[in-house]
Design a binder for these strands. Structure first.
Length: 645
DNA sequence: AGCACCACTTAGGAGGCAAAAT
DNA sequence: ATTTTGCCTCCTAAGTGGTGCT
């Protein structure tokens, strides 16, 4: 941000704005960027062993498929089926008599390899080439990435039209693999101020429509051909418009804080209501409040089968006496929600009632309830209250409580930050925010386990030395001499072989280097016998290891020469600590691998909690909010250290 | 009540880039 | 110096929830 912009920064959050239905008085922008047109590469498809050159439109869709050859989508028969059907449609559009009838006879690898080469070329670009590309991108951003709202400069979020490709539906989406066709200017509606200059559509084209609707915030809109969904171009998350609604969302959640006690009382009473519709409503609300479940709108058959609270079915909740509910269902994005929780006795009874025969598999658990009914009721308890407010409220309040409980006042920065992460993780857990486990996770965990074992081994060797220094210890400190089942002889052998190999390499390398230096300085070279001498200990160890004999700790030189028993006990205690931290790190990593902290930080945690916390505990905000997050949360930056959610 | 339609927030993954590890 | 890792940004799918009509 330059000085000029800083001077005129509009602090909208200092103003009282009541009417949010009108979003702007004037609005101007440059419209949208279209992805570059398709450029044919003339790489053939191999069909039944025959090279087949495709017409450009067919080549294009085939290329989108070829580029996904190394993804898991290839294992999804629905994806393949949908793609192939649409591929054939395009083929037919190109020529009435194409010969491609069977997917199994198609070989896309030539195209795949072509795109791999392109990827590599892109990687191998020189710095200048990359810089040039970057500059071009920035130039586009400077014009299309900016809008003027009531005369103020604002960033636009997604000003590029989504490029064509194969629809990547998540989970078991029935339409995954369908062809997402190229969006034409004729598909796009522009929303812009009456007096603003209408953006020029690409040459030879026209917009579908140009409107001047100040009650909506979008700048452009089109409909996606696969799911018939609306796609919008909005302002960026850091814009005033988005900021205002973000702040409004958290203010609504804080409002709920004020009346949640009475709402809880009400629904707790309603759990026993004779009217089953009310009883279902109360039970669902209990779950939404306690477990932060999503509302659960109805979905159609051409979407993935996922559910939220109101759409839970018979098979998604099971009961375990005396009061445990076991949830197992796919939620948003087909993320599994699996949780066994003890619940209020009446809730437990109710669920059993709602599951009574003739209700069975596939039937709605809450057959008398949907999100509209629920939200109507919530509206009557508090203006503006809907099911999703509970998620925001519970996430933020949990976060604030956890932070207060666990931040060490006099801790180090690192300790404070990990207290923050811990609180953040609690929320991610509550909201079931997960992420996929990366390919390398297992090997990373193995590495860490190796580190733990090597520390344990070190500990064992200290103990052995201790025994040698003071044999009495074996009786006096018997607990030290207990065998650790994790530290197996097999592992020790492998470990010793590995470090001995490394030791040898290190010594040989150093030797070679020294000799090279000597050569340059015209000095006498070191002899083979010198090397042998240096390798003395290594060679002795190698001999032992070669025999396949599992070495005894006694066979190695002491860890700390001339150490006293007291000193050794100290080392052992220190190693114990290191083992503990390494294990903790491991557990931390394992948990963090599946837990997405950012989703809650971005969407559920009132940023003012974080900012106030940072101010109170003297933590730089940048430690937990990235640059874009700081921009998004600018409205929260001025908050007092003692601000409370 | 049930729908079609619309506008907006929330979500995980891909990919790029810089820092850390080797 | 190169590879690995981890974080950030971008992308767009997948939710929520409102309105207006029948």
């Amino acid at each position: 941000m330059n000085d000029e912009e800083q001077e005129i920064e509009y602090k909208w959050w200092l103003e009282q704005k009541s009417d949010t239905s009108v979003k702007w008085q004037t609005l101007s922008h440059k419209g949208v960027v279209f992805p570059p047109p398709y450029v044919p590469h003339n790489i053939p498809l191999v069909y039944s062993g025959q090279k087949l050159l495709l017409e450009p439109p067919a080549e294009e869709i085939a290329s989108y498929f070829a580029q996904m050859l190394d993804t898991d989508y290839m294992k999804n028969p629905v994806f393949i089926k949908n793609f192939f059907r649409e591929f054939q449609i395009i083929l037919r559009e190109c020529s009435s008599r194409h010969t491609i009838e069977e997917f199994s006879k198609c070989d896309f690898t030539l195209m795949y390899e072509h795109f791999q080469r392109i990827k590599e070329q892109k990687k191998a670009m020189t710095k200048e080439e990359k810089d040039k590309l970057k500059k071009e991108k920035e130039a586009i951003k400077a014009s299309y990435g900016v809008a003027f709202l009531d005369g103020r400069k604002e960033k636009v979020g997604n000003y590029t039209i989504e490029p064509p490709g194969l629809f990547r539906g998540r989970g078991e989406h029935p339409k995954t693999g369908c062809y997402k066709r190229r969006v034409q200017p004729e598909d796009v509606t522009i929303n812009i101020g009456k007096d603003a200059q209408i953006p020029e559509p690409p040459a030879g084209h026209h917009w579908k429509n140009v409107i001047h609707d100040s009650t909506v915030s979008w700048l452009a809109m089109w409909k996606d051909n696969v799911n018939d969904n609306f796609k919008y171009v909005f302002l960026a998350p850091g814009s005033s418009l988005k900021g205002q609604s973000d702040m409004k969302k958290y203010e609504m959640a804080r409002n709920l804080k004020g009346c949640v006690d009475s709402i809880r009382k009400t629904y707790t009473a309603d759990l026993r209501n004779k009217d089953m519709a009310i009883r279902q409503r109360a039970t669902a609300l209990y779950l939404i409040d306690k477990l932060a479940l999503r509302a659960g709108n109805e979905k159609s058959d051409d979407e993935a089968d996922t559910v939220g609270c109101c759409s839970l079915r018979y098979e998604h909740v099971s009961t375990e006496e005396p009061n445990i509910l076991v949830f197992d269902f796919l939620g948003k994005d087909s993320v599994r929600y699996f949780n066994a929780v003890p619940v209020d006795d009446q809730v437990f009874k109710n669920i059993k009632i709602f599951k009574r025969p003739p209700k069975t598999h596939n039937d709605d658990l809450f057959d008398r309830l949907n999100t509209t009914v629920l939200n109507k009721h919530l509206q009557s308890l508090m203006p503006g209250l809907t099911a999703k407010v509970f998620r925001t409220f519970n996430a933020s309040i949990t976060f604030q409580d956890e932070l207060r409980k666990h931040t060490p006042k006099d801790g180090t920065l690192q300790e404070k930050l990990s207290a923050y992460d811990k609180a953040n993780r609690r929320v991610a857990e509550l909201c079931n925010h997960q992420k996929g486990v990366g390919k390398s996770h297992e090997s990373q965990m193995e590495k860490m386990q190796d580190k733990v074992l090597s520390l344990k081994y070190l500990r064992r060797r200290y103990i052995e030395q201790l025994r040698q220094v003071e044999p009495k210890m074996k009786r006096k400190k018997a607990e030290l001499f207990e065998a650790d089942p994790e530290l197996t002889d097999d592992w020790i052998l492998k470990y010793e072989i590995a470090i001995t190999k490394k030791d040898r390499e290190r010594i040989v390398n150093k030797f070679d280097k020294e000799n090279a230096e000597r050569k340059q300085n015209k000095e006498k070279a070191l002899l083979k016998s010198d090397l042998k001498e240096r390798l003395g200990e290594v060679i002795a160890k190698e001999k032992l290891l070669e025999k396949g004999k599992i070495p005894s700790v006694k066979d190695f030189p002491p860890m700390k020469r001339n150490a006293t028993a007291d000193k050794l006990l100290e080392y052992i205690a220190k190693t114990d600590d290191r083992i503990k931290t390494a294990k903790l790190q491991m557990e931390d990593k394992d948990e963090n691998k599946t837990m997405a902290l950012n989703t809650s930080r971005l969407n559920y945690l009132d940023p003012r909690i974080t900012i106030a916390w940072c101010k109170t505990f003297n933590v730089p905000v940048a430690k937990r909010f990235s640059a874009t997050q700081r921009e998004k949360f600018r409205w929260a930056m001025d908050v007092d250290p003692d601000w409370e959610f």
